[in-house]
Measured scan of single mutants.
Amino acid sequence: MGSVRTNRYSIVSSEEDGMKLATMAVANGFGNGKSKVHTRQQCRSRFVKKDGHCNVQFINVGEKGQRYLADIFTTCVDIRWRWMLVIFCLAFVLSWLFFGCVFWLIALLHGDLDTDYKDDDDKSKVSKACVSEVNSFTAAFLFSIETQTTIGYGFRCVTDECPIAVFMVVFQSIVGCIIDAFIIGAVMAKMAKPKKRNETLVFSHNAVIAMRDGKLCLMWRVGNLRKSHLVEAHVRAQLLKSRITSEGEYIPLDQIDINVGFDSGIDRIFLVSPITIVHEIDEDSPLYDLSKQDIDNADFEIVVILEGMVEATAMTTQCRSSYLANEILWGHRYEPVLFEEKHYYKVDYSRFHKTYEVPNTPLCSARDLAEKKYILSNANSFCYENEVALTSKEEEEDSENGVPESTSTDSPPGIDLHNQASVPLEPRPLRRESEIGSRR
């Protein structure tokens, strides 16, 4: 089982795998120059863009038009607004034209077009017409509009002379109601789609790998820009990579689940303020055997998904993003964004995407760390350097704002901070800030 798991979770494809794949392509008759073999020097295209759209195009789909027309309502909801407006206008105009032609044909076959009612006051002739005051196609078209929109100006009306005319008036009224219901329903469904809710759900630009509770963890940050909550919010993550099976089958995008606390339930989050999602790199993680150097040379993509129900409509929305291997910062942490004021908490989104480097973060893999092949620094050293990194950030910001350097908390000259780390230190809580992250 261990060997199978290692093969499945191998992220960085070796040169031997690339040569094996190329040999397979030639042997199977696919070596026509169009096949692409992804190596370390040639990274694959992003499968999920940063804005959440999937970078996929469908080609050679059989009976595409028929399949889309069979699900016309979903098609109308998914198309762009400009095409929705075109369909909206065409549906009414074509129905008016169709029934206008029908009423014109009825008048033509009944002989109503030969009668001039402007110079004739004989009401008996008017009563013999199928539709009064309809003696041309324009008049028939206007009567069709008046019937379907129930305008009723009063000059044109159907008589009991022709039952077919009466039937067409009733039929057009029913068709008009159906068109109204369909168009209004599609427009309302399109307006109520929770897709735009994703514009106020954000992911951090970069993911980070750092120590948390004595273990290497992959972390990324999510935030909600609205005050309205995302009900039943939960997160998922998958690692996408290519691999070759033991039988020699090439899988271009193998999807591997990344555990973010599904078993323990901590994948469900209360997204009021930005939260750091934590994936513990343990023996079940696809990143277990990867060191910093392996991450730098790897070719994979981590897709992160945030799902929840919109509070206003109770409709489920899904926000997506992805991180390539070069977008994962090893040995970094996110800057705090949640600050405790006197009577409330304040979230500073200008710090949302910012990170700071944490010294002495192990550069080895989580496996080597678990097997004690890498000796961690003293816990006080880690905490102290973590505090120094934050303090230096604040000093830089104070210097930019014009604060005198004498007010900063610099260490005395001639003292090495790293050498001082081995000395037991008193706890130094942050002056006014605390970061709330997901705790395992």
Rank of each mutant, 00 (worst) to 15 (best):
V4H: 09
Y9V: 14
I11G: 15
V12N: 15
S14V: 13
E15I: 03
D17Y: 04
G18A: 05
M19L: 11
K20S: 08
T23S: 14
T23M: 03
M24C: 08
M24Y: 08
A25T: 14
V26K: 14
A27V: 10
F30G: 13
N32C: 09
G33T: 13
G33S: 11
K36C: 12
V37A: 11
H38Q: 13
T39Y: 05
R40F: 06
R40V: 12
Q42I: 11
R44A: 15
R44H: 12
F47H: 08
K49C: 07
K50F: 01
G52L: 00
V56M: 09
F58P: 12
N60E: 12
E63S: 15
K64V: 13
K64T: 11
R67M: 06
D71S: 14
I72M: 11
T75W: 08
D78S: 14
I79T: 10
W81I: 13
R82N: 03
R82C: 04
M84A: 07
V86T: 15
V86G: 05
C89S: 05
A91E: 05
F92I: 15
F98V: 14
F99V: 00
G100M: 00
G100P: 00
G100L: 01
C101A: 09
W104Q: 03
L108I: 07
L108A: 11
Y117Q: 01
K118T: 02
D120C: 01
D121E: 11
D122K: 00
S124M: 15
A129W: 04
C130T: 00
V131H: 02
V134H: 01
V134M: 11
F137W: 14
T138F: 05
I145D: 01
E146K: 03
T147F: 02
T149Q: 12
Y153W: 07
Y153V: 03
G154T: 04
G154N: 03
R156E: 03
P163D: 02
P163S: 06
I164C: 05
A165T: 02
V166H: 02
V166A: 03
F167M: 10
V169S: 02
S173D: 03
I174S: 02
G176F: 02
I178H: 07
D180M: 15
I184S: 04
A186S: 09
V187K: 02
M188S: 15
M188Q: 11
A189T: 05
K190I: 09
K190G: 04
F203I: 05
F203H: 04
M211L: 08
R212T: 03
D213E: 15
D213G: 15
D213L: 08
G214H: 14
K215A: 10
K215Y: 04
L216D: 00
L216V: 01
R221D: 01
G223V: 10
N224G: 08
L225S: 14
R226W: 07
R226C: 14
R226N: 11
S228P: 04
V231L: 13
V231Q: 08
E232Y: 12
H234I: 09
H234Y: 03
V235M: 05
R236L: 01
Q238H: 09
Q238E: 11
Q238L: 07
K241W: 09
T245C: 15
E249K: 15
I251C: 13
L253D: 13
L253C: 11
D257W: 08
I258S: 02
I258W: 00
I258L: 13
N259I: 06
V260W: 00
V260A: 09
D263H: 06
S264M: 11
D267M: 06
I269Y: 06
F270D: 11
L271V: 09
L271Q: 04
V272P: 07
V272L: 11
I277F: 09
D282W: 02
D284I: 13
L287C: 01
Y288D: 00
D289P: 08
K292M: 12
Q293V: 12
D294C: 05
I295F: 11
I295W: 07
A298C: 08
E301P: 01
I305F: 11
V310S: 13
V310E: 12
E311T: 13
T316M: 13
T316G: 09
T317K: 05
T317S: 09
Q318A: 09
Q318S: 11
Q318P: 07
R320F: 13
S321E: 04
L324F: 05
E327F: 01
E327P: 01
E327N: 01
I328S: 00
G331K: 02
H332W: 05
R333L: 14
E335L: 07
E335P: 01
E335S: 11
E340N: 10
E341N: 13
K342S: 08
V347E: 06
Y349V: 07
F352A: 01
K354C: 09
K354V: 12
T355I: 02
E357G: 06
P359V: 09
P359W: 02
N360E: 15
L363V: 11
D368N: 08
L376E: 15
N380W: 03
F382Q: 09
E385G: 03
E385D: 08
N386K: 06
N386S: 15
N386F: 05
E387I: 02
E394Y: 06
S399I: 12
E400C: 10
N401L: 09
N401F: 07
N401C: 10
V403L: 11
S406C: 12
S406A: 12
T409K: 09
T409A: 11
S411H: 06
P412G: 12
G414L: 01
L417T: 08
N419S: 11
N419M: 14
N419T: 10
A421G: 10
V423W: 08
V423I: 09
R428N: 13
P429C: 10
E433V: 11
S434M: 10
S434Y: 10
E435V: 11
I436Q: 10
I436V: 13
